[in-house]
Computed example of a mutant assay.
Amino acid sequence: MWRHIASNALTFLVVLIFLLGGVILWGQNEYVTQGPLDEQICLRVKPGSTMRGVSRELESLGAITNGSIFRVGSEYSNKKSQLKAGSWLIPEGSSMSQITDLITRGGASTCGTEVVYRIGVTKSEVQVRELDPATDRYVEKAAFDPAEDDQPEAFKTVRKQQDTRYRVAVAEGVTSWQIVDALARVDVLEGDVAKVPPEGSLAPDSYEVSVGQDRTSVIEKMRQSQDLILAAAWENRADGLPLENPYEALILASIIEKETGVPEERGQVASVFTNRLNRGMRLQTDPTVIYGVTKGQGVLGRGLRQSELRAETPWNTYVIDALPPTPIANPGRASIEAAVNPDDTNFVFFVADGTGGHAFAETLEEHNKNVAKWREIEAKRASE
C-alpha cells in the first residue's frame, strides 16, 4: 500500500515539475514576445512610482497582456529596483522585456512635455509643447514672449513637473549679443555670461539644457559646435576661393545668412559675393551696413538712411573694398558650407523678386531691369 502511495506521489511530483517548467517557459516567452500595442504611446513614470503601479498602468493602456509576468520578468532580470522617473516613448509592438529596458535605462525623457526657449532674429519666444505619440509630432500647448507677456498657466504647470524637458533653440542669423540677452531670460538656467562671445562663434541649433545648468556652459557648447562645423567645412572647401582662412569664410557665411532666407539660394548668393571678391568689386550688401549701425545689439526696425549707406564704418561694404573685419551674425551650417562651396555662376548682382527670393544677374543692364521690376512691386504693395 505504501509503495502504491509513494509511486503515485512521485508521479504527481514529476507531473507537477513538468507543469511548472511549462509555465515558466510560457512566462519567459510571453515576456520577450511582441506586445499588443498597435501604436506607440507615451508612458509617464512619476517620481516614487513602483513596478507594480507601472505594470497596472501598462495593462490599462493595452501595452502588456499580464502585469504579473511583467513584474516577475523585471525582478528576474534584476531591473525591478531600477525604475526611472520620466516620460518614455513606448514603440508599437514592444515586448515586456523591451519596455522594462526603456523605463529602467534612465537618461533624458523621450516623450511627454518640453519647454523650448526660442531665440529668433526679431523676437524670442517660450513654447510649451507635447509629443503626440500617434503622429510622432509635437503639439503646441502654449507660447509667450518672456520679455513682454505673463507666464501662462500651462507653462507654470509643466515647470513644476520633474520630467519636463528643456531646450534652447537658436535661429540662424542671430547675433551673439542677442543670444546672451535671451539666455538671461531662460529661467531654468543659472549664472551670468561675463562677456559677449565673438560674433559668428556660436552655432545656431537646438540644445537640450537642464534645470540649474550654468549659462556659460551652454555658450561653450555652442562655441565648440561652431568650431567643429567651420573646421569641417574649411577642410572640404572648393579651390580658388578668395578667402585666406576659416575666419574669412565665417565672415562671408554670416553675410550669406543675412541676405537670404531661401535655402536653395544660398549657393547662388555665395557665388555673387565670391565673384565680386575675385573681381575686386565691393560687396555692397545692406546687412553689413545695418550691423555697423546696431553692432548686433537688436534689430534696426526701419530702412537704411542714405547717410548710413555713405557712412564710413568698418562694416559698410558700400565703402570698404573687401570683407568686413568680423562676422555680422552667427551663420548656420548651410551658409558656412555655401561660403566655401559656392555655386559656379557668373552672377555679380541680385535683388529681391517679390516672392521672398531674389533675381540674379550677370550684367548691370540685366540687374537694372530686375531692380525696376522690384520697384514696381514695392509701389504696387504701397498703394494697396
Rank of each mutant, 00 (worst) to 15 (best):
Asn278Ser: 09
Glu264Gly: 06
Val269Ser: 08
Ile290Thr: 15
Val272Cys: 07
Arg266Leu: 07
Leu304Tyr: 12
Gly267Ser: 13
Thr285Ser: 15
Gly298Gln: 09
Thr294Phe: 13
Thr274Ser: 02
Val289Gly: 13
Glu264Gln: 14
Gly303Pro: 04
Arg305Val: 07
Arg276Lys: 02
Glu265Ser: 06
Val293Glu: 13
Leu300Asn: 09
Gly296Glu: 06
Gln268Asn: 14
Gly298Met: 11
Ser307Lys: 14
Asn278Trp: 00
Met281Glu: 05
Leu283Asn: 01
Ser271Tyr: 04
Val262Met: 14
Thr260Lys: 02
Glu264Trp: 02
Leu277Glu: 03
Asn278Ile: 03
Met281Gly: 01
Leu277Met: 08
Val299Phe: 13
Val272Phe: 04
Asn278Asp: 07
Glu259Thr: 04
Asn275Cys: 00
Gly303Leu: 04
Leu277Asn: 01
Gly292Ile: 13
Val293Ile: 15
Thr274Phe: 01
Glu257Ser: 11
Gly298Tyr: 10
Gly267Thr: 07
Pro263Ile: 00
Pro287Ile: 00
Asn275Asp: 03
Ile290Asn: 04
Glu265His: 11
Ile255Arg: 03
Gln306Asn: 15
Thr294Met: 09
Lys258Trp: 00
Lys295Ile: 00
Val299Met: 07
Phe273Leu: 10
Gly298His: 08
Glu264Tyr: 02
Thr260Leu: 02
Val299Trp: 10
Ile256Ser: 05
Val293Leu: 09
Arg279Asp: 05
Phe273Val: 00
Arg279Ile: 00
Thr294Lys: 09
Ala253Asp: 03
Ser271His: 08
Glu264Thr: 13
Leu277Ala: 01
Phe273Arg: 00
Glu257Val: 03
Ser271Cys: 06
Arg302Tyr: 08
Gln297Glu: 15
Phe273Ser: 00
Gly301Glu: 12
Thr274Asn: 08
Tyr291Asp: 09
Val269Tyr: 08
Glu257Ala: 10
Gly292Tyr: 12
Gly280Tyr: 01
Thr260Asn: 03
Gly301Cys: 12
Asn278Lys: 14
Val299Ser: 13
Thr285Val: 13
Val293Lys: 14
Ala253His: 06
Val262Gln: 14
Leu309Ser: 10
Lys295Glu: 14
Arg279Asn: 05
Gly296Trp: 08
Val262Lys: 14
Gly280Ala: 01
Glu308Cys: 15
Thr285Gly: 03
Val269Lys: 04
Ile256His: 06
Arg310Lys: 15
Gly296Ala: 07
Ala270Asn: 06
Ile255Val: 11
